[in-house]
């Protein structure tokens, strides 16, 4: 039994809590949130022990691992405290507000020898996992271009202000939305090394950007385009697509469908010359509890299994999430 505590029971925190609550290998020992309404609900119905002070919760409940799902600006201080207490940490994305803070936490996690993971769930979606496998196989030949796109209907009218509309708290399309596709590109291809040009565009918001357009160069010299807009109401929900072009083939993939074009036959087992289409149905591994998509359970299970020593701690580590923070910093500086 892994003893787990949660800090922050907002949208992602509640979702993690539900998944943890259904995991037979997990005992949720405590939940910490500032909302009395949420705490009372979780205590009344789920019989969770709820706190408003996370240090008190840690002292009293002695968890093995902690999920951190508070606004990004609080990540650094809270995660540092958890690492100092030698606890395994799952943090929501993005990792930290500055690359310097992130670097310090990576070193501390390494020093303490704890499992560390950040909630970039796209890497647990079947289609994107297959994209990574194909890229790593070399079947696309020499990769020379990519396009990463993400569109959705988050801000479609002038907003009232919340922490998401404050860039110093982790708000804005770049940190909150573009982070997902940037992380996916980095994880699939290579870290971003140079930003050749960037536009951060406000459409409805006054203090943050609603769209991010950028030309990126990766550490392997591959160049590509990032296009993200969270004010596009022609999308029902967030929709992320990556396109990767190589000398021997091309991939276009979103969360539901993977299209692969190969110049040669026998380039990859299970794939023919020309276009191949696979969909999420055949690329999804079953989970034991499903809340709005397998990937959310898969990433939590992966973390719990890493804590239990059953799988290596290699997907979505602090280090990998730091590359995304770093790219975000480069894009923001370039756009100034």
């Amino acid at each position: 039994m892994i003893k787990v505590a949660l800090i922050g029971a907002g949208k992602m925190g509640i979702s993690h809590l539900s998944i943890l609550g259904a995991n037979p290998n997990v005992e949720v020992v405590g939940v910490c949130d500032t909302s009395k309404m949420v705490n009372d609900f979780l205590n009344r119905y789920g019989k969770f022990s709820c706190f408003t002070d996370y240090q008190k919760m840690l002292d009293e409940t002695k968890p093995d691992a902690v999920f951190v799902a508070v606004p990004t600006k609080f990540h650094y201080a809270i995660i540092k405290e958890l690492l100092n207490r030698k606890l395994h940490v799952f943090a929501e994305k993005p990792f930290c507000l500055t690359s310097a803070q992130g670097k310090e936490l990576i070193d501390l996690a390494l020093h303490q020898g704890v499992v560390n993971q950040v909630g970039y769930h796209n890497k647990f979606i079947g289609t994107f996992k297959e994209v990574k496998r194909i890229v790593d196989s070399g079947a696309l030949g020499k990769i020379h271009h990519f396009v990463g796109e993400s569109y959705g209907p988050v801000v479609t009218k002038p907003q009232q202000s919340t922490w998401r509309s404050d860039p110093t708290e982790g708000g804005g399309c770049l940190l909150d939305y573009a982070a997902h596709v940037i992380d996916l590109l980095i994880g699939t291809l290579a870290p971003v090394s140079v930003v050749k040009g960037s536009v951060l565009d406000s459409i409805y918001s006054t203090s943050v950007e609603d769209a991010v357009y950028s030309l990126l160069e990766l550490s392997n010299k591959v160049k590509g385009v990032l296009s993200v807009n969270w004010s596009d109401e022609t999308y029902r929900k967030m929709s992320t697509t990556i396109t990767i072009l190589g000398t021997k083939g091309k991939i276009i993939s979103d969360a539901s469908e993977l299209k692969v074009f190969l110049k040669d036959s026998n380039a990859l087992p299970g794939y023919d010359k020309g276009w191949n289409v696979k969909n999420i149905t055949e690329l999804t591994e079953p989970v034991n509890f499903n809340l709005r998509g397998e990937e959310y359970t898969s990433q939590v299970d992966y973390f719990i299994n890493a804590v239990a020593g059953k799988v290596p701690n290699t997907i979505n580590t602090f280090q990998s999430a730091w590359y995304t923070d770093w790219a975000i910093e480069l894009i923001r500086n370039n756009a100034k």
Binding site: I14, S18, A22, L42, K47, F289, N290, L291, R292
Partner: peptide, 16 residues
């Protein structure tokens, strides 16, 4: 809807 049913299920809010 399933998102609400399953969320409440995981949170053990059976009474709801």
């Amino acid at each position: 809807q399933n998102v609400i049913t399953d969320l409440l299920l995981g949170l053990r809010a059976d009474e709801v």
